[in-house]
Design a binder for these strands. Structure first.
Length: 497
RNA sequence: GGCGCAUUCGUCUAGCGGCCCAGGACACCUCCCUCUCAAGGAGGAGAUCGGGGGUUCGAAUCCCCCAUGCGCUACCA
């Protein structure tokens, strides 16, 4: 692999880029960076009907978000452009023409209707579907005026085609199992087969790394390289990414668009790390790897052969790992947009950065994705917290105490706490703890009972960050107001049992 | 139907003839820490290496057959 490594990621702009495609891009990028080669982005927009506006931007946006920079392609240009196949139609037409002239291909005038019917019949007779080669023997002058022909490849009727796949090893296919596939469509656009072979050659691609679904077409491509007189590149077919049902991952498996992951708050570095491990591994234990480490260690030899199910579960864990590694400033910068977006509307914007930072410090290790930030911290921002009154005293109801007794005990506790909090000299976590811990003993409550009660009163929930730090961040005023509100809840409970 | 590729814990994987009655990670369970939830730490459960034949002193690792899965079989990529 001493030669110049040039690899490409060649998506078709038919929709939003999904993680399967992106993983292919990542492997190509890692391979290029590892070998100091070039990573090329080429847009395969040869299907006019399926091309969707904005898809190219989405693809580039996805790559940029993940930090997969390309050396040649849209935006950056390059010596081998243009990088949109729709702008290279002349080249494909020329090469197709050449193949016809040299006897490697022929024009076919069969109508789509005839082809469809033929296919249907073949299927019903349990025959392998494929073009019956009716136009293969037409002479140069036998043309059908008014019918725009397609150009088909004259696949050899005998012999076999073999090639070495860097991941699978040698693959052999009998030529007679291949039909005369289309090179140029009647609208003048090339099919994938023609366009990718021509461009991979013209763009001096050294290694074609693409998804496994292309393995079966590669013999056709080999035949084309021969006919066109091009030396073929190396091939490496990547294992596919599967949905939970083990079929090719697609939209019906839920969130698969790379941008959806971004919106949910996955970090690009976590995404890169996770995707790299889908089909590739370094050894038997290393999982968390930086971009640089991935580049340093990436190699074709360590790519697996079997499809991998995309596990949201593990991705979530890994994202949490990366989230915890962030400095507070970085975390703040990452989370702010999500909070602005997800916090309930009554919370005044813009958020106070200093205050948000204090709250974030308390939830950093509890977050898996940024999307959860609002839910984890909303009580820091809301004017009042809402919760069922029963939460206040449920921790006190254990043992022989009846519910109403527990509520009464909760009231007693709160009544003892409020005035002391009011007069606490210094409002910080240590002082709060110094006051409240002995108080629990005094009230004949366990710390768990007292702190649990206060946690509910102050945050409205039973699971939250450590109490004293939380109260310190919330501030005296907010805490007292909530404690008083809790007292009110309990009182009205007593009034109407 | 034809052709191709694949098959190790639920999942991602390590393993490339003896170091493996199979190692790591996620998820799960238990315990520790502890004001809850996390995080962290320590354990546990979980794979007759798809099945069957070989080869070999010895196979998850090599060969053959079968089964299953997936992919391709479009004027889609």
């Amino acid at each position: 692999m001493a030669q110049n490594v040039r690899v490409r990621y060649a998506p078709s702009p038919t929709g939003v880029p999904h993680v399967g495609n992106i993983r292919t891009a990542l492997f190509n990028w890692l391979f290029a960076r590892h070998h100091g080669g070039a990573f090329i982005l080429r847009i395969e927009d040869t299907d006019v009907a399926r091309t969707v506006p904005g898809a190219v931007e989405a693809i580039m946006g996805g790559l940029e978000w993940l930090g997969l920079d390309w050396d040649e392609g849209p935006k950056v240009g390059g010596y081998y452009g243009p990088y949109f196949q729709s702008q290279r139609l002349g080249i494909y037409g020329q090469e197709a023409q050449r193949l016809v002239a040299e006897g490697w291909a022929y024009r076919c005038f069969c109508s789509p209707e005839r082809l469809a019917e033929m296919r249907k019949e073949q299927m019903s007779r349990h025959q392998p579907p494929g073009y019956d080669r009716r136009c293969r023997s037409l002479s140069e002058r036998e043309v059908f005026p008014g019918v725009a022909p397609v150009v088909r490849f004259k696949t050899p009727l005998e012999g076999e085609t073999r090639f070495l796949d860097l991941i699978r090893g040698e693959v052999v296919v009998e030529n007679r199992t291949l039909d005369d596939f289309i090179l140029l469509k009647s609208d003048g656009y090339p099919t994938y087969h023609l366009a990718s072979v021509v461009d991979d050659h013209l763009m001096a691609i050294s290694h074609v790394m693409r998804a496994d679904e292309w393995l079966a077409s590669t013999p056709r491509h080999m035949l084309l390289y021969q006919a066109l007189g091009y030396p073929p590149p190396h091939f490496a077919h990547l294992p596919m990414i599967l949905g939970p049902d083990r079929s090719k991952l697609s939209k019906r498996h839920g969130a698969t668009s790379i941008m959806e992951f971004r919106e949910q708050g996955y970090l690009p570095q976590a995404m890169v790390n996770f995707l790299a491990l889908l089909g590739w591994s370094l050894d038997d234990k290393t999982e968390i790897m930086s971009r640089q480490e991935l580049i340093r260690h990436f190699s074709l030899e360590r790519i697996g052969k079997t499809g991998a199910i995309f596990s949201h579960e593990k991705l979530g864990w890994m994202n949490g790992v990366y989230l915890r590694q962030l400095s507070l400033e970085d975390l703040l910068a990452q989370v702010l947009p999500y909070l602005e977006r997800d916090l309930s509307p009554p919370v005044p914007r813009p958020l106070d950065r200093g205050y948000v930072a204090q709250a974030l410090a308390l939830v950093q290790e509890r977050m898996r994705i940024l999307r959860e930030a609002a839910e984890l911290t909303d009580f820091f921002f809301l004017a009042d917290v809402e919760y069922p009154a029963a939460l206040l005293y449920q921790g006190l109801a254990k043992g022989a105490l009846e519910g109403s007794d527990a509520a009464a005990r909760a009231m007693t506790a709160l009544e003892a706490v409020v005035p002391r909090l009011k007069h606490l000299n210094s409002w910080d976590a240590a002082s709060l703890e110094g006051l409240l811990r002995p108080l629990a003993y005094e009230l004949r409550l366990t710390t768990g009972q007292l702190f649990g009660l206060l946690r509910v009163a102050v945050t409205g929930r039973t699971a939250a960050p450590p109490l004293f730090q939380t109260m310190a961040v919330l501030g005296r005023e907010r805490c007292l107001r909530r404690l008083t509100a809790a007292l009110g809840k309990l009182a009205s409970l007593q009034a109407s049992p």
